[in-house]
C-alpha cells in the first residue's frame, strides 16, 4: 500500500473535494491499483529518454521546421481585432450563480 488514507484526505483537501468514508477507501484502493500499474514501467531503462511534457511536441509536427518556427503556428500576434471578440458583460455573467450586472459575486472572502 503506497497511498494511505492520510494521503487521500490531503489531496482531496487541496482539490476542494469532500469525500465520504466509502469514497475515501475506494480512492485508496483505486489510486494504489493505478500506481501499481504505472510501476510496471520501472522495468524499462529510461535513462536516456528525455521527459515528455506534451505529446504534441514530438508527434505530428512539421519536421522541416526547427527552433522557434517549429511551434510558431501555435502562437499569435498581439492584436485585439480579427480574433475572437470579448463577451458582452451580460453574456459573461450569464452562468454565474450570483452577479449584479457588472461583477461576479461570491461569498465574502476574508483576507485576515
Amino acid at each position: 500500500m503506497k497511498v494511505t488514507e492520510k494521503d487521500v484526505a490531503y489531496v482531496a483537501d487541496l482539490a476542494n473535494l469532500e469525500l465520504s468514508e466509502d469514497e475515501r477507501s475506494r480512492m485508496v484502493r483505486d489510486l494504489n491499483s493505478i500506481l501499481g500499474h504505472v510501476d510496471s514501467l520501472n522495468a524499462l531503462d529510461t535513462k536516456d529518454v528525455p521527459p515528455m511534457a506534451q505529446v504534441s511536441d514530438r508527434y505530428g509536427m512539421d519536421e522541416s521546421k526547427k527552433g522557434s518556427e517549429r511551434f510558431a503556428y501555435a502562437s499569435r500576434d498581439d492584436v485585439k481585432e480579427g480574433l475572437r471578440k470579448s463577451f458582452p458583460t451580460e453574456v459573461a455573467l450569464a452562468n454565474a450563480p450570483e452577479a449584479d450586472g457588472a461583477f461576479f459575486k461570491v461569498p465574502k472572502v476574508i483576507e485576515r
Binding site: V79, E81, L83, R84, K85, S86, F87, T89, A92, F103
Partner: peptide, 21 residues
Amino acid sequence: ASKIFCSCSTRFGDPPNTNVC
C-alpha cells in the same frame, strides 16, 4: 495590447467584466 492567451484587451480602468472571453 491583448492578453497572454486570448485576444481580450489589457486596458486598465475599463468597466468591470467587459474584456473577458
